[in-house]
Write a protein that binds this DNA or RNA. Structure first.
Length: 265
DNA sequence: GTTCTCGGCCG
DNA sequence: CGGCCGAGAAC
């Protein structure tokens, strides 16, 4: 009847991932158990940090409980503290090249494609392509970006971008700072054009009329001159980036690498 | 060599 | 305590 030590399919894990619990059968720690995860490719993971390193910065393991394999929203407290500290204390490490937005992932620690069922005519919801493709988004989620500032390696806070005239925000927070965050986030995440809130009803009652696929910004017009000015900026920025990457590459080359166990595969 | 297993450190 | 990882044992 003892069916331990079997690789279990785990709910809340994408197909292919397995969880295993091994009971220690001898020694001082007999009775204790160790938990392992296996990726679809069969790689074994024996700790949360190891999993975290493998999955990269795109995924937030803050509220993931390794032992049970479930998301535990109660763990939110700690990771929030960690985020604050990282932003405020002196950052001795390398500049963070991670481009993922600083937004907590709620559903699962793993990227999980939404299952699209199109061959079920009797079910209206599931045949609705729009619904199946797009994840629901929290209203005014941009507020979570408030307070995040760009800084250089020396912790010097960089002056925020100057927004063109004609960009006006919509919603509960009208600061330029939040507007900038909202627009850049929208550009970052969406492949479709960013127009701002096109319905004027959104100005009167954003909570009801807001188009959540657009930033909290009134509709705006981009002129030819705007475009030309921006092209210049891009060229300059690319030069700076080229220099920086070159310098960074040289610095890294002289660094020894660690984490031998993860490279083994 | 790789995989399994328990010890033990450290928070 | 329990999570995490080193290292010896086992294969």
């Amino acid at each position: 009847m003892i069916m331990e030590k079997k690789r279990m399919d785990c709910p809340s894990l994408p197909p292919g991932w397995k969880k295993e619990e091994v009971i220690r059968k001898s020694g001082l720690s007999a009775g204790k158990s160790d938990v392992y995860y296996y990726s679809p490719k069969g790689k074994k993971f024996r700790s949360k940090p190891q999993l975290s390193r493998y999955l990269g910065n795109t995924v937030d393991l803050g509220c993931f409980d390794f032992r049970t394999g479930k998301m535990m929203p109660s763990k939110l407290q700690k990771s929030k503290q960690r985020l604050r500290n990282e932003n405020l204390t002196i950052n001795k490490g390398k500049p963070d090249l991670n481009t993922a937005l600083p937004i907590r992932q709620t559903a699962s620690i793993f990227k999980q494609p939404v299952t699209k069922v199109v061959n079920h005519p009797s079910n209206k919801v599931k045949t609705d392509l729009q619904r199946a493709t797009e994840q629901p988004r929290q209203l005014f989620w941009e507020k979570r970006l408030k307070g995040l500032r760009v800084s250089d390696i020396t912790e010097e806070v960089l002056r925020t971008m100057e927004l063109p005239k004609g960009l006006t925000s919509v919603g509960p927070d009208t600061s330029d700072e939040t507007l900038l965050s909202a627009i850049s986030s929208a550009l970052h995440m969406s492949s479709s054009p960013i127009t701002g809130q096109t319905t004027s009803a959104a100005e009167k009652n954003p909570a009801v009329w807001l188009n959540t696929s657009q930033p909290l910004c009134k509709a705006f017009i981009v002129t030819d001159q705007d475009i030309r000015e921006q092209e210049l900026k891009v060229i300059q920025a690319r030069r700076c980036l080229e220099d920086a990457l070159m310098a960074d590459g040289l610095a890294r080359a002289s660094e020894s690498s660690r984490d031998s166990e993860d490279k083994a595969a």
